[in-house]
Write a protein that binds this DNA or RNA. Sequence first.
RNA 1: GGCGUCGUACCCAAAUGGCUAAGGGAGAGGUCUGCAAAACCUCCAUUUAGCGGUUCGAAUCCGCUCGACGCCUCCA
Length: 476
Amino acid sequence: MTLRIHNTLSGKIDELIPGGEKRESISDYPAVTIYSCGPTVYSYAHIGNFRTFVFNDFLRRYLKFRGFEVNHAMNITDVDDKTISGANKENISLKEYTDRYTEIFFENLKQLNIESVEHVPRATESIESMIEIIDKLHKKGLAYENEGSVYFSISKFDGYGKLSRLDKRETRTGIRYDTDEYEKDDVRDFALWKASKEGEVSWDTPYGKGRPGWHIECSAMIRKIFGKTIDIHTGGVDLIFPHHENEIAQSEAAYDEKFVRHWIHVEHLLVEGSKMSKSLGNFYTLKDILDRGYSPRSIRYLLMSAHYKKQLNFTFAGLKQADQALARIDNLIINLKYVKNENPDHEGLEKIIDDLYKNFINSVDDDLNISKGLGIFFEFIHTINTLLSENRLSKQNCARIIKVLEDLDKVFGFIFFPENGSGDIDTEKIEQLIKERSEAKKNRDFEKADMIRDRLLEKGILLEDTRHGTRWKKKR
RNA sequence: GGCGUCGUACCCAAAUGGCUAAGGGAGAGGUCUGCAAAACCUCCAUUUAGCGGUUCGAAUCCGCUCGACGCCUCCA
C-alpha cells in the first residue's frame, strides 16, 4: 500500500515519495519535509482558517501513523500591510501588536488539539534569508529595482503559471491594469521587496529601507530551514494564485532546482452555504463558537470529517451532529470500562482489529479519504458494541481495544481529547451516592432513589441503570 | 467573460464502470427497566439535480440544461 495524495502541480493523485526517490518501505524514506502557509497575525483567525490548520495537523499525524518521520514548518506572517496599519491604529509597536495575535493563535491551536510543528519561523526574523534570494535574483537579472522597490520579472521565468495553469486562463475582459501600476515593467510582475513609506517599519537593505513583499517569506524560510526541494507545501486553495505561483517562480529562478514536489490545497469552508464575510454576519472566530457553548472537540471533528478537497459547509446543526458522533465513541469507551470480569476472551478479536487497520489505511492512503476511514471506524465500533452486548469480550479484550483507540487517536486527535475545563468531579462521592441509591432501590424507596438521581443530574452526572448495575457519566 | 470544483436519503457524507449505493445524525420499532433516561440491536435511497448518449452493465464515462460554490483582486 502506498500513500497517494492529489498534487495541484501535476493535477493528478501522485504517490508521496519523500526525497523524490522511490524506496522499498516507508521506514527507508528520509523525513517528510512539509511547509504550511500559516496565519497573518493581524486579528483573530477564523473558523475557515482553522479548517486548513486542522487539515495540516491531520496530514502530519497520518504521515507519522504510517511510519514516516515528519519535519514540518509553519510560518507566522508578522509584517504586512494589515499588521502595520493595525499597530499604527493602536499606536503600539508592530511586535507588540503581532505578539498579541500570535499568542491567541497558538492558544487556539492548542484548544483544537493541533500538534505543535518542528519549526515556526516569523517573517520578521527571516529578513536576511529574504535578502539572500532577492540578491540572487537581482544578480541573475530576473529582478529589477524601481523607486526603492524590487520586482520579479515573470517574463524571464519560463515555468511561470504551471501551478495555476495560467496558460489556460484569459484575463477578464475590461479589467484595468493602469493607474497605480506604472512602476512595473509588466503588470503581472510582483514585488519581492517594497520600499517603506514614511514612518513604517523597515529594514536596511542594499536597495534602501523597505519591507518584504508578500511572497518572499515562504521561499526564504523554506530555503533557510530545509535548504533544498521540499516534499509537501500546503495551504488554502485561494493561495494557488498568485501566492504559490510566485513562490515557485522566486525559488526556482533563484536556485535552479525544483521548489516543491507535492502541492496540497485545502478547499474553503463555507458558513451556512456562503463564504464567510463580516457583512453577512457569518464570520466566526474559534472563540465565537466556543462562547456559544460548543466544544473545541466537536469543532475539530467537524472540520476533519469532510474530505479536504471538498468545500465544507459549516453549520451549527453540523456541530451538533459532530457532537453526537463523538458521543457514540465515548459510549463505546464507557461500555468497555464496565465489562464484566468473568467474560471469556474472544478469539476473533485480533482479526477484527487487523481488518480495521487494513481497511482504515487503505481508505486514508487514497488521497486522505478520512470520511471513508471514519465510516470504517464506526463499523468497528458497531462490531465491538454488538460483542459487548453479548458479553463476548473479556477484560483483556477491552484493554486491547482501548490500545487500538489510543493508536487511532494519534491520527484523529478527538477520541481522548484533552479536557480544557475544570475536572472537579468527586468520583468517590458519586460512587457513594450510587450505592445509597441502589440500597434505596432494593428497599423499593423509589422516591429517595429518584432524588439522588436528580441531585447528581443537577451536578452534570448522568446515571444509567443497566442489567449489571448502575453506571455514570458526565452529561453532555 | 475565462478557468475550475460540485450537485447522492429529512440533514451531514463515502462509494468514480459490475455483488443488496458505506458511515454519522435525525426518525420508527425492539431489548433492558420500578419509572425515566441512557446504552445496545433492528429498520430507514429499486435509486444518485434533470434530459439524452456510450456500454452487456453508469451515481461513476460523454453531451446539453438547471442549480450551488470557488479562483481570475487582499484572502486558509
